[in-house]
């Protein structure tokens, strides 16, 4: 076997990106994933992790508006990009309609997969303000939840979508 660290530590790079609208400047090593940068360097622990191999969807965040798995994105690859995490969803003290609906309808049980679902769902509603169940099933097929069986999550997204469309 080779040394488990493979090579000696290369120098740090200064990463400039926006996280939840805030400019960030952070010196990081290239092998640090966005997940690690968010949780360990920026202490944004709202982004969770369930496998770090891209097999569960728990660590999903939005990079330039697109849902991706932060465990498989390098921090340095986010140079100049804009990242949104669950901490950035609320508008000041006002929860995002998805957050409100998830809380209201019991879509978060243990809450561990919830940030990943919220961000994936947010991008879905950005694209499709009135998604059918089939659309939701396809869009959320990369996020695993062990508590809810997904049903309350669909209901919450439907409620949030209706409210965002102005349906009472």
């Amino acid at each position: 076997m080779s040394d488990h660290r493979v090579i000696p530590e290369p120098p740090k790079t200064v990463l400039h990106m926006k996280v939840n609208g805030v400019r960030i400047e952070e010196a990081i090593r290239p092998h640090k994933t966005l997940l690690e940068v968010l949780r360990e360097d920026l202490l944004l622990t709202g982004t969770k992790h369930g496998c770090e191999l891209g097999e569960c969807g728990t660590c999903a965040v939005l990079v330039d508006g697109e849902p991706v798995l932060s465990c498989l994105v390098l921090g340095v690859a986010c140079q100049g990009k804009s990242v949104e995490t669950v901490e950035g969803m609320a508008n000041g003290p006002e929860l995002h309609p998805l957050q409100e609906a998830f809380a209201e309808l019991g879509a978060a049980q243990c809450g561990y997969c919830t940030p990943g679902f919220l961000l994936t769902a947010k991008e879905l509603l950005d694209r499709d303000p009135d998604p059918s169940r089939e659309t939701m099933i396809a869009a959320l097929a990369g996020n695993l939840c062990r508590c809810t069986g997904y049903l309350k999550i669909y209901e919450a997204i439907e409620l949030a979508a209706a409210r965002m469309r102005g349906v009472k």
């Binding site: 949780r39 622990t45 957050q99 409100e100 019991g106």
Partner: peptide, 21 residues
């Protein structure tokens, strides 16, 4: 009713063990 900890869970505020530093 909603759960008493629901808001923390949807805002990423809930601290799970690995979130502690």
């Amino acid at each position: 009713l909603r759960k008493v900890d629901a808001t923390d869970k949807v805002t990423g505020k809930t601290l799970f063990a690995d979130d502690l530093v």
